[in-house]
Design a protein around this nucleic acid. Structure first.
Length: 802
DNA sequence: CCTGCGTGTCATAGC
DNA sequence: TCGCTATGACACGCA
């Protein structure tokens, strides 16, 4: 741990140097105070929340960081970098959208969330497809995290692949891309230069030995908090990735630093290269921009693993990974723009910003759980907005675990948004009152807040933030609970939702399609019937089942006259029955051994009545095979049903098929034509009765099965609807959060611009704004809310824009 | 030998 | 009343 701290310190120093070189102002405090996991881990030691992240692997890629100058991989690395730069020069919207689309294809069809194992492969493929241009063919997912945004994204997700959270990936990617796209050419060039210098300095080659890193990651991977399924999925995912070997790993180097930070633990020093990456990731929007999205990105990846362990004892946490909603690009950008707006508004309130961060650290304990927990929970709001992970537009995933998702973000929140963080420290209930009532003071302005501000931001290493990390980490868990309650989701609800969504994955339905499932044939029949229920051809062919092919036309007309229950339906089913090859068309039905060829025509049987169709008989594939080995007479006997044998024994002059299927009138005419004995007539009537009943039974069973399937589908649909409604609910909650944030920022803006008669600003700790019933806003002393006091409340009308 | 499944058949209700 | 369908119940064969 000590050496980690040492590296951390060195890294900060180098980082600061880099910042000075590039001329960018960096608010290190924001990183520290927001618990950037790697930093916190370095300081506080590895927590269970972070141990699973494959930080080592993150650094173990071929993106160039660890490549020896003489390494043959270097050329490849530079090529990768060049390609990535080209990609990054593309329209920022185009690439993410493509990725999202890919994602939609895989995720949309069903609400399969529980099947993390299923989603994982798709994730891998998607990623590969989405970043094909950027991918280093030799790169593996579990590589070093120093590379570009895409790379980091994948690396991180490789570490926590068990989460099955694809959405965040895309989001992170987008965020990183968006952020990095704004790097100027000079920045990139400078980064390149420094980076090459860094390479020349030489990083240990062994550091980049992938196999070693992988072993390390393997050791780190298991976590007691993670359920078995998650672990399995994770392994399978990683394995798949490794096997593919062409994982989307960005060879680009100068991108998101935060991803690298995890690697600090295994790194001998914080290289300039990393600092540059961090810098690049930190200020993608330019110096003035404090937009933290790139910083958040890596942590989200980490958060996926953090969530389970961070929220120990919380049933919500473990399943989170599977429910990560995919991100909607448009919404994401909307969020980004909204954040930019907020930032623009906060420019005037820099004092408050910095102050808030310090306040959160120092006063965290004094304010006890209430303050801390709510502060964290509200921070999640900020993070959500920054990352837009909650914007999932896909019904399949996003609907799954909205609350959990938020918690996940909460646990990993590192967004350097001190101001909002602080301002939102009030709990939601208070916020609710905000909209309807008057007092804004206690909600938005912490009592300790004062306008005198410190310039901590430029200070690289601050003891205060460090000391507060532990507190905040502990409060993180509390915030999870608080947020859960705030969102109106109890843990039980969340778990229930999770369970239901798991079951909603369609596995139950799929089980009926298992190859060995006897019902598969029925399913296939029903599906065929339903899919082609309007096809007249099918209904015609359905009649063929009761006749030889040569007589299809004749029986066809007769069949039409039979009528009865759902002609089309039954015919279709019969059609399915008669053609066993149809079942083979479905892969999952290959192993069906049952004979459904009820009505397969007996080819050229009944030589005594060649002009008549052979009645339906039990003719299985096995029978066909046996027929080659048996004499024709035995074959006939065996192929014939009991009624057919009886008919032959009684010398019935027409086929059972006609007996059964002829309309009553024609049937009676047929009987009248032939002079039959009483026994023959009785047998014929029995044959007809039994034959019709047999078909009826088949229809009945089919219908029964269909009913079951429909009910199952209904359940599935209902679950999907429920999940969708929950998703909508979360979206509403999110919008409410945004409104709260806007309210906060507006409050800040208004309050900080207020001046008393002497031109001095009102101290936030002493004054607060209150709404009046007519929409006006009053500034009142905090101590006095009831009676009027010496200071005359200054009345100020302000437009409220929301 | 037991079990599950598919199928055929019977009895019966209902149209 | 007849013919037919639908369906529960049972038996049988098979794996």
């Amino acid at each position: 741990m000590l050496y980690l701290k040492k590296y951390f310190t060195e890294g900060l120093i180098q980082f600061t140097i880099l910042l000075s070189l590039i001329g960018v102002r960096v608010d290190v405090d924001t990183y520290l105070s927001n618990q950037l996991p790697p930093l916190r881990e370095i300081i506080l030691g590895p927590s269970s929340a972070y141990t699973q992240t494959q930080f080592h692997n993150l650094r173990n890629t071929l993106d160039g960081y660890g490549i020896h100058p003489k390494s043959v991989d270097l050329d490849h690395f530079f090529t990768t970098r060049r390609l990535l730069n080209q990609v990054r020069q593309l329209d920022r919207l185009s690439v993410p959208s493509t990725e999202l689309n890919t994602w939609l294809v895989h995720r949309d069809p069903e609400t399969v969330v529980s099947a993390a194992s299923q989603s994982s492969p798709s994730i891998t493929l998607d990623n590969g497809a989405g970043l094909e241009d950027v991918n280093n063919p030799d790169a593996t997912p579990a590589m070093r995290g120093g590379g570009g945004a895409p790379e980091s994204t994948y690396n991180l997700n490789a570490a926590d692949s068990s989460l099955g959270a694809v959405a965040p990936e895309g989001n992170q990617e987008q965020g990183n891309r968006a952020g990095n796209d704004d790097l100027t050419k000079e920045d990139i060039d400078l980064i390149d230069i420094l980076w090459r210098q860094d390479i020349d300095l030489g990083a240990g080659r062994e550091v980049f030995n992938y196999s070693n890193r992988q072993k390390e990651s393997e050791e780190e991977k298991p976590s007691p908090q993670e359920n078995k399924e998650t672990t399995d999925t994770q392994e399978s995912w990683r394995n798949g990735v490794n096997l593919q070997g062409a994982q989307p790993v960005d060879g680009e180097t100068g991108e998101s630093i935060p991803e690298q930070l995890p690697g600090l633990g295994s790194q001998t020093s914080l290289s300039l290269q990393e600092c540059l990456r961090l810098l690049e990731a930190t200020f993608p929007f330019g110096e003035e921009s404090e937009f933290p999205a790139p910083v958040v990105t890596p942590e989200i990846g980490v958060s996926n693993e953090e969530a389970p362990s961070t929220s120990q004892g919380l049933p919500l946490a473990p399943p989170l990974p599977q429910a990560e909603p995919p991100l909607d690009l448009e919404q994401q950008w909307q969020d980004i723009m909204a954040i930019m707006e907020l930032q623009a508004m906060e420019v005037n309130n820099t004092s408050l910003n910095t102050n808030s961060s310090s306040v959160s650290g120092t006063s965290g304990t004094a304010e006890s759980n209430t303050m801390g927990s709510f502060g964290l929970s509200s921070r999640s709001t900020l993070i959500n907005q920054d990352v837009s992970l909650h914007q999932a537009s896909l019904p399949s995933c996003s609907q799954d675990f909205p609350p959990i998702f938020n918690h996940q973000l909460d646990s990993s929140s590192s967004t350097p948004r001190p101001t909002m963080l602080r301002l939102s420290s009030s709990n939601s209930s208070n916020m609710n009152s905000t909209f309807g009532a008057t007092n804004l003071t206690g909600l938005f302005l912490p009592p300790l807040m004062n306008s005198s501000n410190t310039n901590i931001t430029s200070t690289p290493i601050l003891p205060d933030p460090f000391s507060t990390l532990l507190e905040e980490s502990m409060l993180d868990e509390i915030s999870l609970l608080d947020l859960a309650m705030e969102e109106g989701f109890s843990q039980a609800q969340a778990s229930q939702l999770e369970d239901e969504l798991d079951s909603d994955s369609g596995l139950s339905l799929d089980s009926s399609h298992s190859p060995a499932s006897p019902s598969s044939s029925e399913t296939s029949c029903s599906s065929a019937a339903s899919s082609s229920s309007t096809s007249a051809t099918f209904s015609e062919e359905g009649a063929v089942g009761y006749s030889t092919d040569s007589e299809a036309a004749t029986v066809e007309t007769e069949e039409g006259a039979v009528g009865g229950y759902q002609p089309g339906y039954s015919k279709l089913c019969r059609m399915s029955y008669q053609d066993p090859s149809q079942f083979h068309s479905l892969p999952q039905l290959d192993n069906i051994s049952h004979n459904h060829t009820y009505n397969l025509p007996l080819s050229s049987a009944f030589s005594e009545h060649p002009e008549l169709p052979i009645s339906a008989g039990k003719k299985t594939v096995r029978d066909k095979q046996n027929s080659k080995l048996q004499p024709p007479q035995d074959l006939l006997e065996k192929q014939s049903s009991r009624d057919e044998r009886r008919a032959r024994a009684m010398k019935i002059p027409f086929s059972n098929d006609k007996i059964i299927n002829l309309p009553v009138e024609e049937f009676n005419e047929l009987l009248a034509k032939h002079h039959l004995s009483e026994a023959q007539l009785a047998l014929i009537r029995d044959i007809r009765r039994r034959g019709k009943n047999k078909m009826a039974a088949q229809n009945c069973r089919k219908r029964k099965l269909d009913t079951i399937l429909n009910l199952e589908q209904g359940v599935h649909d209902l679950r999907r609807d429920k999940a969708r409604l929950l998703k909508e609910k979360m979206e509403f909650i999110r919008s409410i959060r945004q409104m709260k944030q806007k309210m906060q920022s507006l409050y800040q803006e208004v309050f900080t611009q207020l001046r008393d008669e002497e031109g001095r600003p009102y101290p936030p700790s002493e004054y607060s704004l209150q709404y009046s019933a007519d929409g006006s806003v009053l500034i009142m002393p905090r101590s006095m809310t009831t009676a009027e006091q010496n200071r005359k409340p200054e009345k100020k009308q302000k437009d409220k824009k929301k």
